[in-house]
Amino acid sequence: MQDIDKIVCGSRILLAGLIALGCRLAVAAEDPVTPEQVVGAIENTFGVTPGERRNHTKGTCATGEFVGMPEAAAYSRSPLFSGKRIPVVARFSLAGGNPKAPDTARSPRGMALEFALPDGSLQHMTMLNIPVFGAMRPRTFLDLMVASRPDPATGKPDPEKIKAFKATHPDSRAQSEFMAQNNPPASYASSAYYGIHTFKFIDGGNRTTLVRWRFVPQDGEKRLTDEELKSLPANFLEQRLIERAGTGPVRWDMMVSIGEAGDPENDPTLAWPAARKQVRAGTLTITAAMPQKGAACEPVNFDPLVMGDGIAPTGDPILLFRSPAYALSFARRLGGI
């Protein structure tokens, strides 16, 4: 069994390396920022927890399944929409590199999924509980990390540096405004999660459709009240998810927006019009949740460019940059750094 695990892990590392090489070439012409710079800036801002993820460090594992719908199969030939039960390894998390971040923090929450497709391939989806991202280009994200680095004298970011960042990076405003106007979720189970980027669905005749997806909780969306933000302990999201999964399946509907001419394709900071056609693509069911240490999600590098046939990336610079950055973080994590 250990030999098999080594082969699987080795294959994933090789795949991540190949993807990283291609993506480095793809983004080099658009932005001189490197994965080493971004990962290093994250480490400088949050510190390093050896053997752990550099970003979204605090997280919880879960397992379940996904069943696709024929409505989505009309747009994509992906086995994900075959109607078969697809095993899923999931991870829910808080943004940032602080493993002790309070669950009341006004920061994005993440849901990452690995689907084991019937043909033996994998499909990854990495999402946030916000409809738009805070950077149009990797440079903005790097500058945010640099501006957020704690001042040694106070242990907190310099307010003037944050103010200067916001003034010079208008592409960060939409996400910042959304988080300021919307409290964090009361539970991982009562939050919607957005794919953020635009992707391509490819059907059996090689017809391409631009899409964006989100996962909508059947439990309904519920956010913390202002009073709960003040009174809740630092850790409650993991336990709430474990307890909720223990009472019965937790489900999300995968909703896909069908793009139209003129919709932003390569800018995750811009939302699509709400009037776009919506297709219910399937249902995600989580049947168990557990602490991440030693669980199935812990060793997974949830690279969003790991895709099965029928789904493809666009030229979104942020989407393409995430793969090599994830690969670098993954390599350091495997090395115990």
Rank of each mutant, 00 (worst) to 15 (best):
C297N: 11
A331H: 06
V38Q: 05
S323K: 06
V216C: 06
A274C: 00
M111Y: 11
E298A: 10
P299Q: 04
L270P: 00
K6S: 07
T57F: 06
G155L: 10
M127D: 00
V256S: 01
P170A: 02
D316N: 11
S148R: 15
H124Q: 10
G248I: 02
E52S: 12
G308V: 01
K156A: 07
S107A: 15
S257T: 09
A164C: 04
E114R: 15
F201G: 04
V211C: 07
P157S: 07
A245E: 03
S78D: 09
E71G: 02
I13V: 08
G315F: 13
P268L: 12
T269R: 12
R240G: 12
N98A: 06
S107M: 11
G220D: 10
E298G: 02
F81C: 09
E227Y: 14
R240F: 11
R149G: 01
R149M: 13
A289S: 09
D309W: 00
Y193V: 10
M1Q: 13
G195F: 00
D103Y: 06
Y193P: 05
N129A: 10
V256P: 00
L80R: 03
D203W: 01
P249S: 08
I196T: 14
A281K: 06
Q292C: 09
N206R: 14
V33A: 03
G294Y: 12
R12I: 14
R139T: 02
L237K: 07
V8P: 00
T140V: 03
A135L: 13
T287H: 01
V38M: 07
R54W: 06
C297Q: 03
S329C: 06
I258S: 09
P233C: 01
F321D: 03
T57A: 11
I130F: 08
Y193S: 07
L117N: 03
H197W: 13
E43K: 14
E36G: 10
L21C: 06
G336K: 03
E243I: 13
A327S: 12
R244P: 05
F165C: 01
N235I: 00
W272Y: 14
P233G: 07
L229A: 07
V256M: 12
S190Y: 04
E160Y: 06
W252H: 05
A281Q: 04
G22R: 13
M179H: 04
P35G: 09
T287V: 14
P150V: 12
L224H: 14
